[in-house]
Design a protein around this nucleic acid. Structure first.
Length: 287
DNA sequence: CGGAGTGTTAGTCG
DNA sequence: CCGACTAACACTCC
């Protein structure tokens, strides 16, 4: 599930927890999630110190000593949950049905144990997520496959116009989710950004006016930052590294609100399918 | 019980 | 190259 704000929340939380720690032990409970040959993976990761944690698009990048990088993609239902050696964990009482009180659980696919006995759990219900180990060269290759980061300085109006010029004949919604042009927007935030810019998700890119493009360009980073401030949007599968749910779901204006009243007018939020994805919008507010 | 839907993205097909 | 569609998987909802 996680899109840019959720991954960013996880990354910044993780940074304070595991930077500088040594990976002492690894338990792979489901070989499918390790996209690198298991023996190589263990041999190269065990004993390494975590140097830094960052994000590219929706990928968590954990830099290890000696220029090795652990890449983690959570896809739809992945979680990273940190557990200190002593003290409480985790998501007790939160609406995460399958987490229960104890980890690991049946969805725990991998466990990293650090030298202070704290643990990082990779949980994933649907098993689409993955962890892979790459070197510097491959890291750069993978990073290069993604488009501009919408929270970076390089995301200028000109750059956004350039992106749209690549996808003139598709719907704007599909375009916003195209990771090779714009990194990090998924189904939730593309719907929300389009609502904020008062543009219907079905609009074909080349029909957008300059003013609409500008409004959309402004809306994207604004909404992402606002969501990060609230630790992301929580659905059933998302928690941050401390097992906490985010709050941003309270601020969603269209996503998941089909049939409910629009906050901007008296209309109803509609839901249709675009490119196989549920898309939410207000027929009155968005044109 | 059966079928549709779910936050992602690779891969295929026309 | 484009765009549309599907599969990967497990679970929830109607």
């Amino acid at each position: 599930m996680p899109e840019l704000p959720e991954v960013e929340t996880i990354v910044s939380g993780l940074r304070t927890k595991i930077a500088g720690k040594k990976i002492k032990q690894i338990e792979i409970r489901d070989n499918k999630v390790i996209a690198t040959k298991k023996d190589d993976f263990l041999e190269q990761v065990l004993g390494k110190i975590v140097k830094s944690i960052s994000r590219r698009a929706k990928i968590v990048v954990i830099e290890l000593a000696e220029e090795k990088f652990l890449l983690i993609h959570l896809k739809l239902t992945g979680q990273l949950v940190y557990q200190p050696h002593h003290g409480a964990i985790i998501a007790g009482g939160h609406p995460i049905k399958y987490i229960g009180k104890a980890l690991p659980n049946k969805f725990t696919r991998a466990i990293f144990v650090f030298d202070d006995q704290s643990k990082l759990y990779f949980n994933d219900v649907r098993r689409f997520g993955w962890i892979k180990l790459v070197d510097k060269i491959n890291l750069e290759k993978i990073k290069a496959d993604f488009g501009i980061e919408p929270l970076s300085k390089g995301f200028t109006l000109e750059k956004f116009q350039e992106i749209l010029a690549h996808k003139k004949n598709t719907t704007i919604k599909t375009c916003l989710m195209e990771q090779k042009y714009l990194a990090g927007l998924g189904n939730i935030y593309s719907d929300e950004a389009l609502f904020a810019a008062r543009i219907k998700p079905t609009r074909i890119v080349k029909t957008l006016s300059e003013n609409e493009i500008k409004k959309l360009w402004q809306a994207i980073p604004r909404i992402l930052k606002y969501s990060i401030k609230h630790r992301g949007t929580s659905f059933a599968d998302y928690v941050d590294v401390e097992g906490e749910v985010g709050n941003f779901i309270r601020y969603l204006k269209v996503y998941g609100r089909a049939g409910e009243k629009c906050y901007g007018c008296s209309g109803m939020i509609k839901k249709i399918k675009i490119g196989g994805r549920g898309s939410h919008f207000c027929e009155k507010c968005q044109r």
